[in-house]
Simulated scan of single mutants.
Amino acid sequence: MTQWIKIGALTDIPRLGSRVVRTPGGNVAVFRTENDDVFALDDRCPHKGGPLSQGIVHNKRVTCPLHNFVIELATGEAVAPDEGCTRAHPAKVENGVVWLSLRQTVPAS
């Protein structure tokens, strides 16, 4: 069962911008595209941990503000030639409200 957390109104997130949600597992950046699609990623670039929430959103990607790594918003994967991945979280909009689901991770034993 997926548990959804209400983030707020879609209009609270600027177009081509983001909002940071503080969670027990770390900060999650919730992004809004020009077409009002929403995506959520851990707020850490896979390169050197830069704050993706402060990056430039373009199409369905974000460019890290530190070293210009480009990250796919849907998957968290770096765009070639860059390598790496940040965790993506399910996000959706219903009736103008943004919802976020935080995936539970189990530490390796």
Results as ranks from 00 to 15, higher is better:
residue 1 M to A: 14
residue 2 T to H: 04
residue 3 Q to S: 14
residue 4 W to K: 00
residue 4 W to N: 00
residue 5 I to G: 04
residue 5 I to F: 07
residue 7 I to M: 11
residue 10 L to S: 02
residue 13 I to T: 12
residue 14 P to W: 04
residue 15 R to S: 12
residue 18 S to D: 03
residue 19 R to F: 10
residue 19 R to I: 15
residue 20 V to Y: 07
residue 20 V to E: 11
residue 27 N to I: 06
residue 27 N to C: 11
residue 31 F to N: 00
residue 33 T to I: 10
residue 33 T to L: 10
residue 33 T to V: 10
residue 35 N to A: 14
residue 36 D to A: 04
residue 37 D to C: 09
residue 37 D to Y: 08
residue 37 D to W: 06
residue 40 A to G: 11
residue 41 L to H: 01
residue 43 D to Y: 01
residue 43 D to Q: 01
residue 44 R to S: 07
residue 47 H to G: 03
residue 47 H to F: 07
residue 48 K to I: 10
residue 49 G to H: 01
residue 51 P to D: 03
residue 53 S to P: 06
residue 55 G to R: 02
residue 58 H to M: 05
residue 58 H to K: 04
residue 62 V to P: 14
residue 62 V to L: 08
residue 62 V to I: 13
residue 63 T to Q: 14
residue 65 P to W: 06
residue 65 P to Q: 00
residue 69 F to Q: 01
residue 70 V to R: 03
residue 71 I to E: 09
residue 71 I to P: 14
residue 73 L to P: 12
residue 78 A to G: 11
residue 79 V to G: 02
residue 80 A to P: 15
residue 80 A to Y: 11
residue 83 E to M: 11
residue 84 G to S: 04
residue 84 G to N: 03
residue 88 A to G: 10
residue 88 A to H: 10
residue 88 A to K: 05
residue 89 H to M: 11
residue 96 G to E: 04
residue 97 V to P: 06
residue 98 V to T: 09
residue 99 W to S: 06
residue 102 L to K: 06
residue 103 R to D: 15
residue 105 T to C: 14
residue 105 T to N: 13
residue 105 T to E: 15
residue 109 S to L: 03
